[in-house]
């Protein structure tokens, strides 16, 4: 469903991504790992259209994304989270989800009848279900900026999912989480896959990546140095040198 073809991105002299190829099948969870600065976030930014690629192509469901603006890509079915949490701090939790849900389908009519007459419809119920899913059921009227860190992460995941994407890009969703929170996140990601989303998971937390992904691509200095099933990646010598070795040694 997604085909990245010899994709490159230069920032001045820095080659953040070099001739990267990546194919993703529908329904898969693909892990992308690599040391800091290896180009993982840049890959997410390129797929979501935050900035244009220097060279190469991204084909999504048979259509080239390069001409599409970020908002058009969301409409086409690509959603993402950010490595540094991004929410609308001045909107409530509920509003954050509502505007996201709105991009999947025009929900203006229901929005009006809800705001003015407190009449709930299918979208309202859906958002309530999403709050439930995120463990934020009692926080709907809270400002996003008043949430604790872990809650903000959960809201961000729900917000990305609310746009009803077919491809979901998660940029280090477990960063800063404790063990229990990571287990919850694992469960939520699996749930989203069951709902039919294809997922690219960028992560440093190896337990999460190894347990949940179908395949893993390893980046180093912007190039893909390995790709395969989790077990094979764990065994791979060059991966251990480039990446896993680093943290195991100290």
């Amino acid at each position: 469903m997604l085909e990245v073809k010899s994709l490159s991105k230069n920032f001045g002299g820095v080659k953040a991504v070099r001739e990267l190829d990546l194919a993703v099948n529908a329904g898969d969870i693909i892990g992308v790992i690599g040391p800091n600065g290896s180009g993982k976030s840049t890959l997410v930014n390129l797929i979501s259209g935050v900035f244009p690629a220097t060279a190469g192509e991204i084909i999504f469901q048979g259509q080239s994304l390069s001409k599409l603006s970020p908002h058009a890509r969301v409409k086409a079915g690509v959603a993402r989270t950010f490595q540094n949490i991004r929410l609308f701090p001045g909107l409530t939790v509920w509003q954050n989800l509502w505007v996201a849900r709105n991009s999947a389908e025009d929900t203006r009519a229901e929005g009006i009848s809800y705001r003015w007459f407190r009449k709930s419809g299918p979208v309202k119920n859906e958002i309530d279900a999403m709050l439930e899913f995120s463990g934020l059921a009692d926080k709907g009227d809270e400002l996003a900026s008043n949430l604790a860190f872990g809650e903000q992460r959960r809201l961000e995941l729900a917000r990305a999912a609310a746009t009803k994407p077919s491809l979901l890009l998660l940029d280090e969703p477990a960063a800063g989480m404790n063990h229990d929170e990571i287990r919850d996140l694992d469960r939520r990601i699996r749930q989203l896959r069951q709902q039919g989303m294809t997922i690219i998971l960028i992560e440093h937390v190896m337990d999460l990546v190894m347990g949940i992904t179908d395949r893993i691509a390893v980046l180093n200095f912007g190039s893909k140095i390995a790709e395969g099933e989790p077990a094979a990646i764990q065994e791979n010598k060059s991966v251990q040198e480039a990446y896993l070795g680093q943290s195991d040694d100290d």
Binding site: S48, V50, S69, P70, H71, V74, K75, A79, R80, F82, R86, L87, F88, P89, G90, L91, V99, A100, N102, S103, A104, T163
Partner: peptide
């Protein structure tokens, strides 16, 4: 208000 708070995120919401 979304535009005022985070224009990039607004785009990533399909607007």
């Amino acid at each position: 208000r979304m535009l005022g708070q985070d224009p990039l995120l607004t785009r990533v919401q399909g607007l």
